[in-house]
């Protein structure tokens, strides 16, 4: 059968199945289990209404349980067992082993670096672009261009930037933009940018900043537009210059939005994997937690330590996630 046809069939079965489930389960509830007639009609209606929300939530709860809750619990269990002892319970041995590995601490250190630099720079550039493009005619074109990297997958972006950082032997023509510029201006030898310790971390971060700036720009641009115009005019009359207006009137008014953007990007950063995997695979001191986990789980096949590092990431993400969701809810109110 043609794959497109198969796809359509899948959609039809999926959507039809959902509709059928909701329709028939509701019908059974109202007509078979608790019919709204006979001597118990009132009681039956109340009972049906008590059950109905659970009936409708059931599929979502199953899906969440199967694909979210179960993996978390299973990962926790695996992190406490050992591969070499046939899955025997070993307590915190895997964690101890992980904490003893320099590669893990390298990943922790790099993750912290990412955590500070990427959200800060993305938010700052996003805010800058949002402000600068606010009132100009071609602002929307500029914003579209800056937003575009959002549509590129992390791996795709990594490939693009790998080309930018590309190095050819000295004397040959450089196809990497960075080396081309570097060689042309400094006259020195081309650099293997991704192998320069510490600096290569920042070269990797640039990729994520490039992608996330579009996101923060869109959100912050909307927030800036939401600032009452009259407060800005009042500030002008009060004698504030454009820079004072920006920092003393505009930024404080969108502070909570800035924090939501910041934490949302922080969450992306904590999970960063694709960029590092595709560009250096953690070599030259660029390891990050997610890639460390991947290496342990699928390259070394050590599910114990791999799961332990997964739990570590979850532990770091959770408080920020909770804070972020709370703040976003507050925004909506």
């Amino acid at each position: 059968m043609h794959p497109a046809f198969l796809g359509l069939l899948t959609i039809a079965i999926g959507v039809g199945g959902c509709v059928a489930y909701y329709f028939f389960s509701n019908w059974v509830l109202d007509n078979v289990l608790f019919p709204a007639k006979g001597p118990q009609a009132g009681r039956n209606i109340n009972r049906a209404n008590l059950i109905r929300p659970w009936l409708f939530l059931f599929p979502a709860m199953i899906a969440l349980g199967l694909y979210l809750a179960y993996p978390v619990i299973e990962t926790l269990r695996l992190s406490l067992t050992d591969r070499d002892q046939d899955g025997a319970f070993v307590g915190l041995a895997n964690y101890m082993q992980m904490f003893g590995e320099p590669k893990f601490w390298e990943a922790m250190r790099n993750n912290m670096l990412w955590l500070i630099v990427v959200p800060a720079m993305s938010t700052m550039f996003g805010l800058l672009v949002a402000q600068l493009t606010d009132r100009i005619k071609w602002g929307n074109i500029a914003k579209s261009l800056i937003f575009m990297p959002m549509a590129i997958s992390f791996v795709g972006a990594a490939v693009i930037w790998k080309l930018i950082y590309d190095a050819r032997p000295e004397g040959t023509e450089q196809i990497g933009v960075l080396n081309a510029i570097y060689v042309a201006f400094s006259g020195g030898a081309p650099q293997q940018w991704l192998t320069l310790p510490i600096w290569n971390n920042f070269f990797l971060m640039v990729v994520l900043i490039w992608i996330q700036t579009g996101f923060s720009m869109v959100i912050l641009s909307a927030a800036l537009r939401g600032i009452p115009e009259e407060t800005i005019e009042a500030a002008i009359v009060d004698g504030a210059n454009p820079i004072q207006i920006f920092f003393k009137i505009k930024v404080p008014q969108i502070k909570s939005t800035i924090m939501v953007v910041w934490t949302t990007i922080t969450l992306v950063v904590l999970k960063v994997f694709d960029i590092v995997f595709a560009m250096t695979n953690g070599q030259w001191s660029t390891q990050v937690l997610a890639n460390y986990m991947y290496t342990q789980l699928f390259v070394a096949n050590d599910w114990g330590v791999g799961s332990a590092s997964a739990m570590m990431i979850m532990l770091l993400v959770t408080p920020i996630l909770v804070w972020n969701v709370r703040n976003a809810r507050k925004e909506m109110r």
Partner: peptide, 28 residues
């Protein structure tokens, strides 16, 4: 505007929402 020796009261009051009354009044 700031050098014209004028002050303006806006229809929507245009108070700076993130500043206290004292800060609002002392901003200028």
């Amino acid at each position: 505007p700031a050098q014209r020796g004028i002050a303006m009261v806006f229809q929507s009051y245009a108070l700076y929402p993130h500043m206290t009354v004292r800060e609002n009044m002392s901003f200028a």
